[in-house]
Design a protein around this nucleic acid. Sequence first.
DNA 1: AATGAATGAGAGTTCATTCAT
DNA 2: TATGAATGAACTCTCATTCAT
Lengths: 216, 216, 216, 216
Amino acid sequence: MSTSRSVRAKAAGKEAGGAREAILAAARQEFSAKGAAGARVNEIAARSGVNKQLIYYYFGNKEGLYAAALEAVYGEIRELEQGLLLEEEAPDDAMRTLVAFSFDYLAAHPEFIGMLKHENASGAQRIRQSPTLQGLNSPLIAMIRKTLKRGVASGIFRQGIDPLNLYISIAGMSYFFFSNGATLSSIFGRDLAAVRSVSAYRRHVVDFALAGLMAR
Amino acid sequence: MSTSRSVRAKAAGKEAGGAREAILAAARQEFSAKGAAGARVNEIAARSGVNKQLIYYYFGNKEGLYAAALEAVYGEIRELEQGLLLEEEAPDDAMRTLVAFSFDYLAAHPEFIGMLKHENASGAQRIRQSPTLQGLNSPLIAMIRKTLKRGVASGIFRQGIDPLNLYISIAGMSYFFFSNGATLSSIFGRDLAAVRSVSAYRRHVVDFALAGLMAR
Amino acid sequence: MSTSRSVRAKAAGKEAGGAREAILAAARQEFSAKGAAGARVNEIAARSGVNKQLIYYYFGNKEGLYAAALEAVYGEIRELEQGLLLEEEAPDDAMRTLVAFSFDYLAAHPEFIGMLKHENASGAQRIRQSPTLQGLNSPLIAMIRKTLKRGVASGIFRQGIDPLNLYISIAGMSYFFFSNGATLSSIFGRDLAAVRSVSAYRRHVVDFALAGLMAR
Amino acid sequence: MSTSRSVRAKAAGKEAGGAREAILAAARQEFSAKGAAGARVNEIAARSGVNKQLIYYYFGNKEGLYAAALEAVYGEIRELEQGLLLEEEAPDDAMRTLVAFSFDYLAAHPEFIGMLKHENASGAQRIRQSPTLQGLNSPLIAMIRKTLKRGVASGIFRQGIDPLNLYISIAGMSYFFFSNGATLSSIFGRDLAAVRSVSAYRRHVVDFALAGLMAR
DNA sequence: AATGAATGAGAGTTCATTCAT
DNA sequence: TATGAATGAACTCTCATTCAT
């Protein structure tokens, strides 16, 4: 019996111990698409090609699996943020880089957008409860604060702009485009998911944000 | 028996025939908080003080109730939008009014934000399927287009700004503040729901957006 | 209020007091198609264009309405049976008339077949409990008995045929054709509801039954 | 706990893994007695001694269970039909065998009669939709055709009898006896379920059908 | 490490019937 | 005679989770 089972497992393309990763990958898709409440354990088991009970073996329960998926997705973002080296650029260029980055990582990580959407829809309890996820956006805030300061000092940026408020407005412009894209496309009759629409909006966001910072 | 019933009815604040409105009010709260999938018909019945089956009598099924609640909430927004008379203001003042309005109505209608959050989290299928809700934001887009044109003509606004992209970025700045407020407050350790935070962000958004439009 | 209502009632084509008949007509259709358990009071109310509660006013409950519909349908059959005057015909002609009649009345009264089907499917409790419906087929049995006797006496019919068994086999040949027509048509790929099929089977039944009675 | 469970399992007559068969057996009884609509999943679960949800685990839904029960019942009939070897008999004996068989299998399989009754009462949608159940009776039709031909060739059977019509009238005589037995017994005051009644009717049917086929 | 079988809690929905006027 | 509003009981089905191996 056990022999035939492991044979079948290998036939399904899994290595020994690869089941955990397969589950996690399927969970990220499922949770991103349907949220913690809407996701189905059955579906995750089916997608990852493992027995449902194995999910409980590895992750305890649905909540545990969700937490693991959430942290995995956030972990990828954090790595990307580490790569931003704004201090070597001029303040306006640095800010352009930062705005563009905040747009690009959302564009490139639909799973992240999906998780964030559902998290906020359900009151973000889980993010708030996870110590791992608390210090999340802080590196960006610090970067903005420094860059703002440099730009004000050099006279090209306006004074009195609050870094956190600026972060929220910059992030919001991009977030809204992706998170509400379906509604917007439908209501305004323009396909915002089209490559041209995306790159046009990216340009708009960078220009608009930069202009909003400039001293007159 | 009949006495206790009328007492209960009055306790729930219903007049004769007011059951339908009571259900709708409870539904707006419940759907806004938990979305269409997460909302519980039992809960709505309990909150509105009516028999659960009465909900089916009036609205057919959960989906029908959701549609009614969604359209009721949107209906209120639409009335507010009608009151905007931008053409009598100077272009920059008109745009300030518009940005402020897009912030204020989200601030004043948490039910609307709640519905929108869940709608987008679930792919906005329902908004897309409702003919009543199509063409919804178009009045705002038309206002933006006209105001932009006037501002460019008078030389105060930059050229080449797309009205839809501008709308998305303006709306996004406010939407993100409210929809992701819980997460943001927690992560950055500042209570964004506090009155001072809200009014500060309102000021920031108006200033930032206006500056972003100005010709240099 | 009451004025506007009676106006509406007349507008719907009902005379004063015609509601009862409208309900009964709709009930016969509905019960015949779906049986006592499957029929829906809502549907009967909708079909007859009356308020649901009126059904309870007139008939007490669903069971009472069913009984009324059942007896109405059976009443029509009984009237038809009264018209059979076999004694003036020669025994073989009389038997032909009888077999043909037992076929024709089923062909002409789909509501009767429908009721009978469902009644038997549910164990025929209702027919058994209704004193009105007890003496139902007896006239036919008596006719068969007399005709058989005459035929045996005149030497054209075989001896020893039990009248009740004969009745059952004659009735069964026709009943099965109509009650199981849908299944048979589908399984054997011949449209038994077509006019040609019906008249061909009618001829077959009469010939087959008569030949089965003949002395050799 | 685990002890009481295994006791219960044994009390219900199940071996390990026998739950599926226990469900199916209970389903055949329940569906046969009450039809697809009238049957209660709760009742089937209780009768088979399993948890209600296990039914959904194995059969998906009530409809799936019904289909499985229907095919199981039909499957048994089909096996019986395979055993008929008419070609070795003289045409009249072959026909007697066939008529008797069509009576006997109904007598011996009340579940089959029950299913058929309800199927036809509800329009036979399910039989029509099941590819497995199409072409079901065709072997019998082919047997009748061949036997008729042989009898006509040898001069003992009449000419011009349509095999399908003959099948319907033969099947109908037996079907009606069983399907409407309750009504008939009650109306005519003779217990048709009694052994003597059954065997008398069996003799009648065989004689009557054979006589109906004979050339004069 | 892995699996098929089994379960309890609860959700949405249907429907005959009654209330109150 | 007629009606809209309201209700309780029951039913099918879903889903996370546990049992037993």
